[in-house]
Write a protein that binds this DNA or RNA. Structure first.
Length: 139
DNA sequence: GCCAACGTTGGC
DNA sequence: GCCAACGTTGGC
């Protein structure tokens, strides 16, 4: 069963969607949670990511794409962590806030809401599509 | 800045 | 293998 859509979180002061847009490509480093890591390992090149900003924004702000399958995290030598490489696809025309997702029953089972501390998790194709719609954005 | 939620660690 | 203590995340 191939997961095709994911949500990843980032603190914009640490690494924002703007930074990814500027860099054209980035290693998704620093995941130090087993479940999040295991999700990274299930990603495949071409999978699409909702890019969520924690902190002040608390909103999905852009779409990114996996451009390299998981490999060992070079920032944690000797430890069993993974990274993938990601590239920007596009910014959402209008950011989709956590508040608006919480207010929408279609997202009731989204890990963003139910498991607020998990930083990498799958979203269903419908949820992905609906976030794009709320963000007034087409791929 | 606080603190609830919860993942992880370590003592037993 | 349980569970208390601890540390971290992230919303408020």
């Amino acid at each position: 069963m191939a997961e095709r859509h994911w949500l990843v979180k980032s603190e914009p002061d640490t690494y924002s969607f703007d930074a990814l847009t500027r860099d054209k490509k980035s290693m998704w480093e620093g995941v130090r949670n087993f479940e999040a890591r295991n999700n990274l390992r299930k990603m495949r090149v071409g999978d699409l990511l909702l890019f969520y900003h924690t902190g002040d924004d608390k909103a999905v702000v852009g779409i990114a794409r996996v451009c390299r399958d998981a490999y060992p995290d070079p920032t944690a030598p000797g430890e069993d962590w993974s990274v993938v490489d990601v590239e920007p696809v596009r910014r959402l025309t209008s950011p989709v806030t956590l508040a608006s997702l919480k207010a929408d029953a279609r997202f009731a089972d989204l890990a963003l809401i139910k498991r607020s501390r998990l930083s990498v998790f799958p979203v269903t194709p419908d949820q992905f599509k609906n976030v794009l719609k709320l963000g007034k954005t087409k791929l």
